[in-house]
Amino acid sequence: MSASNEWPLWEIFIRGQHGMSHRHVGSLHAPDAERAIKNARDVYTRRNEGVSLWVVEAKHISASSPSDKGPLYDPAKDKIYRHPTFYDIPDEVGKM
């Protein structure tokens, strides 16, 4: 079977019962938006009710595209305190 027959990929966003905004939870395949919503219920909420679902076909999402040269890395360099690994925490403390 050729790849062109493959169901399109959808990005799934969920807002939980008490959530303030939709969060990206993952992706899945579906033939259309209606089915993508149903599949999302089955795959990502295991039927949890009271959640709001958004589905967006992956190809319609535009993402920022970091340039592959210096400018991307430079700004980060003088703000290393923003990176979690800047703070050396002993392993015994556990997950943080």
Partner: peptide, 10 residues
């Protein structure tokens, strides 16, 4: 540095 590589990154 522990940064994550994302899909569009080189």
């Amino acid at each position: 540095r522990g940064e994550k590589i994302e899909p569009k990154d080189w």
